[in-house]
Design a protein around this nucleic acid. Structure first.
Length: 405
DNA sequence: ACACCTTTGAAGACG
DNA sequence: CGTCTTCAAAGGTGT
């Protein structure tokens, strides 16, 4: 991933977060050492963006309003952050984190898991069109976010490391090879509770006193047989019909099972189902928070919403982000177990985006060329970011975090 | 009908 | 090994 400044001063908290998850031991010290500095840089950059960024989109005003609100909140958070840093340097939070991978989440899916059904407090801001099944793993209440000592085999995401059938994962998704279809109903892809969206008061939505998720309707996967079905018989959100562009109502949305017209269309074109990439931490965050932002900011345009979400992501504390990184890690593990032979490259070649099925190589090349041209416009040479947006808007270019120091 | 926009992160490709 | 590229989601907008 292109970084504004690679090396010593990581510009964004997200990246060093990943380092903290991925590396053990030696990284630990570095991270504790740099915990404040890096975060501070991220804060600095974020505040720069909030203060000066302008937006050319039709929703620029709303985005700016959001920025201002966020910035106010951010300043408060920044004060708290100082306390947090001292905690980290005491060997608290990050000591516990360095043992990546770790599982600190209570398991709402395991019938006899560590969390009783009554304590299955899963606070989910439900989108109108579905919820990622793993999102329910998020213990949004900080009370439940309790980093525990790692008890997983070390870094399963490392290449060359054999993918273990980790107990943790098999607990979530008891999927021994060849027996993956025996997922207990409580562990199937379920519909998620629908909680009312907040108003623009921007309250913290993650109350720990949430209704028992068992009181919400569930759909056992036996009801979900359909195009999004893994060959093993397990429906998985990563599988989408090859009809091209993904239905905006998620493939794991219960509504997908009530679209016979699409069904007939698929029957006409029986193609190999497409296995999508597992969602990363930010994607999971977006999925969860999108509805909230829409409600608060009365925005609908995804591009604008994503800008806001990007800023909010950076405004999150490490602890808050860690929830999503952990969730994403589980997502990847699950994905690896369900589709061991899948590679992200499969979807590169399929040319899924926009997808009327497979794209010709010429189209694919065109797209690549366009992207290259676009990136050449950017002085950073990397992907556009909120930071880049500034520069295009003619505002004086902000100092890069390192330059600001 | 479909590409684009916009975000971050993961992973593959490539020099 | 470092950098670049693509794709995950989303839905309004533009062609």
């Amino acid at each position: 991933m292109p970084q504004l400044s690679s090396g010593g001063g990581d510009d964004l908290g997200a990246n060093d977060e990943m380092i903290s998850f991925k590396d053990e031991g030696e990284q630990d010290e570095k991270i504790q050492e740099n915990a404040f500095t890096e975060r501070d840089l991220a804060d600095l950059k974020s505040s720069l963006v909030n203060e000066s960024e302008t937006n050319q989109s039709p929703n620029a005003a709303a985005v700016r309003r959001e920025q201002q609100n966020e910035h106010r909140g951010y300043q408060e958070k920044h004060r708290e952050h100082l306390d947090g840093v001292s905690k980290h340097q005491d060997g608290g939070m990050y000591k516990a984190y360095t043992g990546y991978p770790f599982l600190m989440l209570p398991d709402p899916y395991i019938p006899n898991g560590s969390v009783s059904p009554s304590s299955n407090k899963v606070s989910v801001v439900q989108q109108s069109h579905g919820m990622h099944p793993l999102t329910s793993l998020l213990p949004y209440s900080n009370d439940h976010f309790n980093p525990s000592p790692p008890h997983l085999p070390t870094d399963m995401s490392q290449k060359g490391v054999q993918r273990p059938q980790s107990q943790d994962i098999s607990g979530f998704y008891p999927l021994p090879p060849g027996a993956v279809g025996q997922m207990p109903p409580s562990m199937g892809w379920q519909s998620q509770p629908v909680y009312p969206l907040s108003s623009c008061g921007f309250r913290q939505p993650y109350s720990s006193s949430l209704p028992n998720s068992s009181s919400y309707p569930r759909f056992s996967h036996s009801l979900m047989l359909g195009p999004g079905m893994h060959p093993t018989g397990i429906p998985h959100p990563a599988i989408v019909p090859p009809s091209g562009k993904q239905d905006h109502h998620d493939h794991y949305d219960r509504n997908m099972y009530a679209k016979p017209h699409q069904e007939t269309k698929r029957e006409k074109e029986p193609k190999k189902p497409v296995i999508k990439k597992p969602l990363n931490a930010f994607m999971l965050y977006m999925k969860e928070m999108r509805a909230k932002v829409i409600a608060e900011c009365t925005l609908k345009e995804s591009a604008a919403i994503n800008q806001i979400l990007g800023r909010r992501w950076h405004a999150l504390t490490r602890e808050e982000q860690a929830k999503y990184y952990e969730l994403a890690r589980k997502e990847r593990q699950l994905h690896m177990q369900l589709y061991p032979s899948w590679s992200a490259r499969d979807n590169y070649e399929a040319g899924l985006r926009g997808g009327a099925g497979e794209k010709s190589k010429a189209d694919w090349g065109k797209k690549k060329r366009r992207k290259r041209e676009k990136q050449q416009d950017s002085t950073t040479g990397g992907k556009r970011s909120a930071f880049d947006t500034f520069k295009e808007d003619g505002a004086p270019a902000p100092l890069l975090p390192m330059e600001a120091l």
